[in-house]
C-alpha cells in the first residue's frame, strides 16, 4: 500500500506549475507602428535527453492570440487561416547546442523551420522569423495600413532540468 501511495505521489509530482508555454509574434506595420500578438496557450512539452531537446508536438490555438485590439484579434486569427485550420502545430522538434529544427503546419501548409534557442534552466526560449507567404497567406492590408510579411516569433516552453 505504501508503495502504491508513493507511486501515486510520484506519478503525480509534475510537470511543475500550471504554467504553459507562450508565444509572442512581433508584427510591423507600414507606414508605421507595430503590435505584438501574444498567446499563453501553447500546448505540448519538451523532453531533455543528454543535451538534446525534443518534442513530438507543440500546438497553439490561433484564436488565443491577443493583439491589444479586438478587431485586430479577429483579423489576425483570420489571416493565419484559423477558419480552416484552428491550430498551428510544430512537430518533430529537435534541438541542441542553441539551434533546432522542426516542421510547422500553418494555414494548411507544412514547412520545415529552423530556430535559435536559449536554455534558461527551466525555460527554453526559441526565436525565429517567419515569412507568411511561405505558408500561402495573402499579403495583409487593412484600410491602407499594410502588415509586414516577415514576423518575429518568440516561443517560451517550460522544460525543467531533471
Amino acid at each position: 500500500m505504501k508503495k502504491t501511495f508513493l507511486n501515486l505521489i510520484l506519478l503525480l509530482v509534475p510537470i511543475q506549475s500550471f504554467a504553459e508555454g507562450s508565444i509572442q509574434i512581433a508584427v510591423k506595420l507600414t507606414p508605421a507602428g507595430s503590435f505584438v500578438a501574444k498567446s499563453e496557450r501553447l500546448k505540448g512539452d519538451l523532453t531533455r535527453n543528454q543535451g538534446e531537446i525534443s518534442s513530438q508536438k507543440l500546438s497553439v490555438s490561433l484564436d488565443s492570440f491577443k493583439t491589444g485590439m479586438s478587431l485586430r484579434d479577429e483579423h489576425f486569427c483570420k489571416h493565419l487561416g484559423c477558419e480552416s485550420q484552428p491550430k498551428a502545430v510544430l512537430s518533430g522538434l529537435k534541438a541542441s547546442g542553441g539551434k533546432g529544427t522542426g516542421s510547422l503546419e500553418l494555414n494548411g501548409v507544412k514547412r520545415d523551420i529552423s530556430f535559435n534557442y536559449e536554455d534558461k534552466d527551466s525555460m527554453i526560449v526559441a526565436k525565429f522569423e517567419l515569412n507568411s507567404t511561405d505558408f500561402k497567406m495573402p499579403h495583409a492590408k487593412y484600410l491602407g495600413v499594410e502588415v509586414s510579411d516577415v514576423v518575429s516569433v518568440e516561443v517560451r516552453v517550460p522544460a525543467p532540468k531533471k
Binding site: P31, A32, G33, F35, M69, L143, G144
Partner: peptide
C-alpha cells in the same frame, strides 16, 4: 496603443488634421 507614429492615422505625418 502601439502607434508611435502619427502616419497610420493622420494624413499629416506629424499628426493633427483629418484622420485616414
Amino acid at each position: 496603443h502601439g502607434y508611435p507614429s502619427c502616419m497610420n492615422c493622420h494624413y499629416n505625418p506629424m499628426g493633427n488634421g483629418p484622420l485616414t
